[in-house]
Design a protein around this nucleic acid. Structure first.
Lengths: 159, 159
DNA sequence: CGAGCGGGTTGCGATTTGCAACCAACCTCG
DNA sequence: CGAGGTTGGTTGCAAATCGCAACCCGCTCG
């Protein structure tokens, strides 16, 4: 751990402390997709078993994933997202959409659709008061402790 | 690089390939907050200068960040998000909200508000056809290549 | 009984970090 | 003019982390 990084008072930092590495995020993605067993994860991700073991252990400790037995004799387990883990879906969806937008040439490899009607989904930031979608340029970050308010996207360079 | 990880055909993978490490995400967070200069980033993040140098170089190569001179004599630069970089904001917002939800005891350290009215923002997944917010359990992931469709949150264990 | 499978742990060399030291332009002050 | 400061890096090296292969354990199947 760094010896107290200055801007640690941010939830992004707290979040990345927990899930902020390559493999952890990919493990979570696979758990979302329904891949649940140790060996399935190893096969699908190509991750080394010791690393997967570490990551899962950490995720279980953090309450993001739970290890549930699906048979005994021999005792076998699968890993499932807890509500806390499932609550990461917006973040994963956002990362995926960004990749679709900028790295999928042509059609994205996987799209998320509304189960009821099959329509590809969108993700928006909304103001519950104004009931409208807010573009990134209209978002401000507001510190609760110190008052270091700044527009999240400084519009000086907007064309 | 792993020798072709099996489930690479996913935009999350592509995304993480580019920005999927602890420091890169934190650098981006700071750029969103308006921290733009090399030394500011070093001070704020507590990152080693060589690492910051590498990360910025990679981000510039990827077209996520651009290095713009803000004075010459002495030539000084600042790093700004390109549209591609700014498009990552939903992902960062989602990560931040998760941290707020699960790791901020009491009040979150930083909240995002609508510039026009100061109301804290929310983020939703929406179906453009049904015009309604879609909960994670109602989202399906649909592969474009192979047909390995599965509900993103398998509801078998839902209580 | 021995092979095989799921689910790991252990060991070890290779890579990546983090830190400190150094460097090079340029500016400012005495 | 020269000493020292600031910005924006690069270099070197010890320490942590990763990836791979090997091994282990409980259990089942032939």
């Amino acid at each position: 751990m760094p010896p107290t990084p200055p801007s640690a008072a941010c939830s992004i930092n707290a979040t990345l402390e927990v899930i902020g590495d390559r493999w952890t995020l990919l493990v979570l993605r696979d758990l979302f997709r329904g891949v649940r067993r140790f060996s399935e994860l190893v096969d699908d991700l190509g991750i080394a078993k010791n690393l997967l073991s570490d990551r899962l252990k950490r995720l279980v400790e953090e309450g993001i994933v739970e290890k549930v037995p699906y048979q005994d004799r021999p005792a076998r387990f699968e890993y499932r997202l807890t509500p806390k883990g499932a609550d990461l879906s917006p973040a994963l969806i956002a990362l995926m959409r960004w990749g679709d937008e900028w790295y999928a040439d042509g059609n994205p490899p996987v799209v998320l659709v509304h189960e009821a009607c099959g329509t590809p989904l969108e993700q928006h930031v909304q103001c519950p008061r104004c009931c409208e979608t807010v573009s990134p340029g209209k978002v401000r970050s507001q510190s609760q402790q110190q008052s270091a308010d700044r527009a999240i996207n400084d519009p000086r360079e907007e064309r």
